[in-house]
Design a protein around this nucleic acid. Structure first.
Length: 556
RNA sequence: GCCCCCGUAGCUCAGUAGGAUAGAGCAACGGUUUCCUAAACCGUAGGCCACAGGUUCGAAUCCUGUCGGGGGUACCA
């Protein structure tokens, strides 16, 4: 997605190319980028290098001809957006924009009624985003927290670029893991009656079940000497209800909500497993070996063939997962995005292989994969294990640091990199960390508007933006020009950290501007122009914070 | 063994179809407030972009290999 200024500059380059060579440039030649040095102008084009082999000329020669063609155009057209162009280095064309061209970009931003940064790239297509999907066997950990924030921010981002988004949580509320959970809870319960039993192998050791047991004791007030069918049903239901409740609370505290909670048990009840197996069989996707049924995964680009139906007749997780995705497809989503941890890699390739052999289009299902979170405290990395009861809960982390800090830390690194969450730093620097920094920039703007006569802020379309001639002002506008592109990139490339980065950079630029130039001044026209700029910055920062799920405080 | 991700300043990390002299934050050091919130700003210092080759006008970025970290390679979920 091109920004307004990029579109403008590319038009200029194309026009100069046509003039110089009497031919349209290849689309691949049309590439520009903002410069990182003022002496290189505002935007730079490398078209001379890219076109060298096709035109059979040296980049410097091509650049020279483009330079003179463009210079002609600039001199004959007083309204040309480019002030001047320089040929530099191996053949770069460095373009210096007229302030009016930059100011015009701000004018367009102020004139849009849509939330700033939004676009219609998605064309109203539907996308389902599934994330967290932790089974209700214990509280969420910090690892789940990263996925929760990642999925939630991606979902919001897709909404901003014009998709219809549904957030879904998939959970398993019956089966072997739940039986183990029920039995573990029963053991804890009996302990309250001095009736000692061992927590089953692979059971759940965490202390959190003791609390549940204590609650249960108050309601039931009698021991269950045997873990028989009645006890099993009771403890299973209690444990699942209680854990689901806890998970929803943990997510709620973090500001994460779902449109649908999808029960795996429903898939079984509806006969989806059998239907899916028939479908795969009919498409020659499975074979039998050693009494089990296997998926022909490798032949369709997946990891090595895996068991779908065990020799005892029970379906594997993969089998159910495939059925789940077929169900998603039947529900009519145009796209489906699963947010998952890196440990599911093999599984993902197998699901994709299954869908491929059923003839699903390749782009229908995407995975956003993230690496794990380590907590660092006192210089020590903590290894976590839910079953062994060694973990820091998301709940404790959120209570400790607050929603905004947790969300910012979780989202500020690219998903495919490991995240070292330094607890000491997050606490010690809490008054000075990036999330606060962005919020404070927003707050400063709000503060200025509170002090402003409201009649002056009613219509910025009347502001004389040509008064915004300071270097810092033009740079801020150029940054604002990029905002919709950043939002699109963050969504489509599964890179929400880019938005966090952008918010930080824009805040930095604003703070520096604030420090150097006053907004509330005697010069009414200039003040109005600056307020218009601030309104646009506030729009971008407010949207940044909103998408990241952070508060945009009026005061701090 | 094979597959996926990562390796950039002391620490945590950005670096956008390969672009000109590699950037932030934190930590360190030194400055800034009669003025819109100093939760801020300005400056100094800090680097063989893990290593070795290759591709080309040009590589942190692409390819190959090596080393290091994480994950996967279950009739677990």
């Amino acid at each position: 997605m091109l920004t307004h200024l990029e579109t403008l500059i590319l038009g200029v380059i194309r026009s100069a190319y046509c003039r110089a060579f009497g031919d349209e440039p290849a689309a691949a030649f049309l590439e520009i980028r903002p410069t990182d040095r003022p002496e290189f102008g505002d935007y730079t084009s490398n078209i001379a290098m890219l076109a060298a082999s096709k035109l059979r000329a040296s980049p410097r020669d091509i650049g020279g001809r483009l330079h003179s063609a463009l210079t002609d155009q600039i001199e004959t057209d007083p309204s040309h957006p480019v002030a001047r162009v320089e040929l530099a280095g191996p053949g770069f064309l460095n373009l210096f924009l007229k302030p009016a061209a930059v100011q015009d970009a701000l004018k367009r931003i102020l004139a849009t009624s849509e939330p700033f940064g939004s676009s219609t790239l998605g064309e109203g297509k539907s996308i389902q985003i599934e994330f967290v999907s932790s089974n209700p066997t214990g509280p969420l950990t910090v690892g789940h927290g990263r996925q929760a924030v990642l999925g939630d921010v991606l979902a919001t981002l897709y909404g901003r670029i014009g998709y219809n988004v549904q957030r879904e949580y998939y959970f398993n509320d019956e089966g072997q893991q739940i039986d183990l959970l029920a039995e573990s809870l029963w053991v804890r319960y009996q302990e309250l009656y001095q009736d000692a039993h061992e927590i089953p192998e692979n059971g759940y050791q965490g202390d959190y079940l003791i609390e549940v047991a204590e609650e249960l004791k108050q309601n039931l007030a009698r021991p269950f000497p045997k873990f028989d069918d009645d006890a099993k049903a009771l403890f299973r239901r209690t444990a699942v209800d209680r854990m689901t409740h806890v998970i929803k609370r943990d997510l709620h505290e973090l500001g994460v909500f779902f449109d649908r909670w999808f029960s795996e048990a429903d898939l079984h009840k509806a006969g989806k497993i059998e239907q899916t197996l028939q479908l795969l069989t009919a498409n020659d996707g499975v074979y039998e070996q050693e009494g089990a049924i296997w998926l022909r995964s490798e032949a369709h680009g997946g990891a090595k063939d895996s068991v779908l139906i065990r020799s005892d007749g029970r379906p594997t997780y993969l089998m159910v997962d495939i059925a789940y995705h077929i169900d998603k497809h039947e529900r009519g989503f145009d796209y489906v995005l699963d947010v998952q941890g890196a440990d599911h890699h093999a599984e993902q390739t197998c699901v994709k292989a299954a869908l491929r052999l059923l003839g699903y289009p390749d782009g229908w299902l995407s995975y956003a994969v993230h690496q794990f979170v380590s907590l660092k405290e006192g210089g020590q990395i903590q290894k976590m294990s839910t079953r062994a009861g060694r973990f820091v809960t998301l709940h404790d982390l959120t209570q400790d640091l607050g929603k905004d800090v947790v969300r910012y830390f979780m989202i500020s690194r690219k998903p495919e990199a490991h995240l070292d969450f330094d607890l000491d730093l997050a606490r010690a620097e809490s008054s000075d960390n990036p999330s606060t920094y962005i919020q404070y920039a927003y707050t400063r703007i709000r503060s200025i508007f509170r002090k402003t006569d409201s009649s002056r802020i009613s219509d910025f379309n009347q502001a004389d933006l040509s008064l915004l001639a300071e270097l810092e002002e033009l740079n801020l506008i150029k940054m604002l020009d990029q905002f919709p592109q950043v939002v699109a990139h963050a969504a489509l490339d599964f890179a929400p950290h880019a938005l966090a980065e952008y918010g930080l950079n824009l805040s930095r630029a604003f703070h520096a501007y604030y420090d150097k130039h006053r907004v509330l001044i005697d010069d009414t026209a200039l003040q109005t122009a600056r307020l218009a700029l601030l309104a646009a910055i506030q729009g971008a920062l407010g949207e940044c914070l909103d998408i990241l799920g952070m508060d945009a405080p009026e005061e701090m």
